[in-house]
Design a protein around this nucleic acid. Structure first.
Lengths: 193, 193
DNA sequence: ACCTGAACACCGTTCAAGT
DNA sequence: ACCTGAACACCGTTCAAGT
């Protein structure tokens, strides 16, 4: 029984194509880590020992490549979030999720600014991330821990802001926590004394 | 009696150089409006009918050009803020300032992402903007309207996030207000019921 | 189906030559 | 002092030719 949600039902790749795809992904991860999310696509193709055309064939846009590169991390992020669902109350759960998403957006330099568009890509990880975020938000709103007029996009906006601040100013784990708290004490109904 | 704060005491420009500087600024404003903050510097030089070298001589970085282009707007923004100081209480005053700054950051496409660095440039407008922001923040904190652990950088971070959200998602004046409120009800001590 | 890389159109930045 | 623009090194994207 296949899921109705399966995005683009992709025809299975030929063996060599699949291999190339994998190599591009590995090279991209390396190069993005070294040079940031705006790194040259040519460099990535070269590192993957693949023609630049092959890269474009598989990943028509930079966002698509970034999304594919982020996919595993996003999947395990969503999974981890669901796993700790039982142990945490809704308010703490969504706060933890946001913190993890900030970590993700800070994984490459330059990813933060693109998070909003990348997360809209049609890949399993992006899908799972959105799903989980929306689920946590609804749950927190149902229990009254979060205001009703907050959208998932508002959440992404928060994450982007925090990640950009981290990227520009100093990182320091406490600054992340500080910013997350700042935003949440606004979004939540809890009074910030 | 000259101000001690006067940034780079700039030697007066030769008449033709001053004229060129002005033309670059006008062209830049136009081109940035048309094509966004990442527009080609070559296009700007051409529109200004100036060699590209002249542009670089006057504005060594893109940020410097963006700052110079924003300068008048930032100056009048700061002035307007000081003007309404008497009529508004601290909480409302800083909220209005943030809203104006969001408008500014949304003036060109792509400016939002650069606001943090552009605002650090050493130009009268950037200086005035920072000054006014810090003043409002202190004032609001003194009256207890804003938490003590909020920094000016936190404010800029907010503005950037909101502007990016505006730029990506739909604009709509109500969304700006919504986001500003969201952030402030977090930053402020007022309980968000 | 897929891969390759040359070809094209672009861009930022520098710097020697000119006034 | 200032201006100019050619020169250099780069980049994204497409597409004809090849397997």
């Amino acid at each position: 029984m296949k899921s109705k949600l399966s995005a683009t039902d992709e025809a299975p790749l030929r063996a060599d194509a699949a291999r190339n795809r994998e190599r591009i992904l590995e090279a991209a991860e390396e190069v993005f880590l070294e040079r940031g999310a705006e790194a040259s696509l040519d460099d990535i193709a070269k590192r993957a020992k693949v023609g630049i055309g092959t890269l474009y064939r598989r990943f028509p846009t930079r966002d698509a490549l970034l999304a594919a590169t982020s996919d595993e991390r996003l999947l395990s992020l969503a999974e981890a979030s669901r796993a700790r669902d039982e142990k945490l109350e809704p308010s703490a759960a969504i706060r933890a999720f946001v913190k993890e998403l900030v970590n993700h957006a800070s994984h490459y330099r330059g990813l933060a600014a693109l998070l909003g568009t990348v997360l809209q890509e049609d890949t399993p990880g992006c899908h799972a991330g959105r799903e989980e975020g929306r689920r946590l938000l609804q749950r927190a709103q149902k229990t009254g821990a979060v205001r009703k007029d907050v959208s998932f996009d508002d959440l992404v906006c928060m994450v982007t802001a925090i990640s950009l601040a981290i990227e520009q100013g100093g990182s320091s784990k406490s600054r992340v926590a500080h910013l997350v708290d700042l935003f949440f004490d606004g979004i939540g109904r809890t009074k910030a004394v």
